[in-house]
Computed example of a mutant assay.
Amino acid sequence: MMKTCFVVMGFDTKVDFATGRKLNLNATYHNLIKPAVEAAGLQCTRADEITHSGNINVPMYLNILTADVVIADVSTANCNAFYELGVRHALRPSTTIIISEDGYILSRST
């Protein structure tokens, strides 16, 4: 059976509010993440590719739990992506990869 990778990230074009940059998350997924994952021999899926009826949460969280690897793109500081990353990291931290676009700025209070 082929190993799986579930990708946690937003969809479409979003603004990185820290920098004001517009990021095409679909292009990032389809042109960078998915080809790299598939070249590594894993089946790659993002939430918008899950066939389901009703609430997406059940199959999405099942993928977050059962995927061999989860990649979380935090480029746009998406609250849902952070939450889903936290769920995955609590369940299976050693097979969770966090990525972001170049220039990602994490604001910290000092």
Rank of each mutant, 00 (worst) to 15 (best):
T28L: 13
I97N: 01
F17H: 08
T95G: 00
G86A: 05
A39M: 10
R88V: 04
L25D: 02
A72V: 02
I97Q: 07
D102Q: 10
F11S: 15
V15S: 07
M60G: 09
T96D: 06
A81P: 05
K34H: 05
N55K: 14
A47E: 03
L85V: 03
L91V: 05
A47D: 11
G41R: 05
E84I: 00
N26G: 02
E101K: 12
L62P: 01
L23D: 04
P35T: 04
N24P: 05
G86Y: 02
A72T: 07
G54H: 09
N55D: 15
C44I: 02
V7N: 10
T76I: 15
D16K: 03
C44N: 01
K14I: 11
I33G: 08
C44D: 03
T66G: 13
N57M: 12
P35K: 05
E84A: 01
F82N: 06
D102L: 12
T28E: 15
S100K: 01
Y83R: 09
I99L: 14
N24C: 04
C44S: 01
K14H: 13
A47M: 10
G54T: 09
G20N: 02
H52E: 15
L32C: 14
T95F: 00
F11K: 11
I56Y: 10
N80A: 11
A18D: 14
N24F: 02
G10E: 08
T45L: 15
M9P: 10
L62C: 09
I71A: 02
L23P: 04
S53H: 15
V74P: 06
G41M: 06
S53K: 15
L25E: 01
I64N: 10
I56D: 14
D12R: 12
A90Q: 00
E101R: 11
A67N: 12
N63G: 03
A90F: 06
D16R: 06
C5I: 12
I64P: 05
D73W: 04
P35N: 06
P93W: 14
A18F: 08
L42D: 04
L32I: 13
V58M: 12
T66V: 08
L23K: 04
L42R: 02
E38Y: 02
T45H: 11
N63I: 02
I71H: 04
V8G: 08
A27P: 01
V69E: 14
D73K: 09
D102R: 13
D68P: 00
